[in-house]
């Protein structure tokens, strides 16, 4: 079972959360702003590997948290990832 560490409520089974999808991140190779916008809206990295994604704590504090999960084995490798630049 996946356990997500909610920064407000503590470690919880993933069933308490709603999946918010991968963070859209167009590849660096796309430089045209319009093409980057298009990619951001429609395309997915759909990584087979470490996937940065958002979860919403629906059954608890109603706040979002970000984790990194290995989609090949379905394990969270990093909890409560900060998205703010240092």
């Amino acid at each position: 079972m996946l356990i997500v560490f909610c920064p407000n409520c503590g470690p919880r089974p993933v069933e308490e959360f709603r999946f918010g999808g991968e963070l859209p991140s167009p590849p660096e190779s796309i430089t045209d702003p319009a093409e980057r916008d298009f990619d951001q809206v429609w395309m997915f990295n759909n990584v087979a590997g470490i996937h940065t994604e958002r979860w919403y704590h629906d059954a608890g504090c109603h706040r979002w948290t970000t984790v990194r999960r290995d989609t090949r084995v379905d394990r969270i490798v990093e909890q409560h990832v900060s998205l703010r630049p240092d």
């Binding site: 409520c9 503590g10 470690p11 919880r12 089974p13 069933e15 308490e16 629906d58 059954a59 608890g60 504090c61």
Partner: peptide, 21 residues
């Protein structure tokens, strides 16, 4: 309750219990 409750008192705990928030 299938998750750890906080040790301090008083404390708030919130989450799914028997499938209910």
């Amino acid at each position: 309750v299938e998750w750890p409750l906080p040790a301090e008192r008083p404390a708030l705990a919130q989450g799914l219990v028997a499938g209910l928030p």
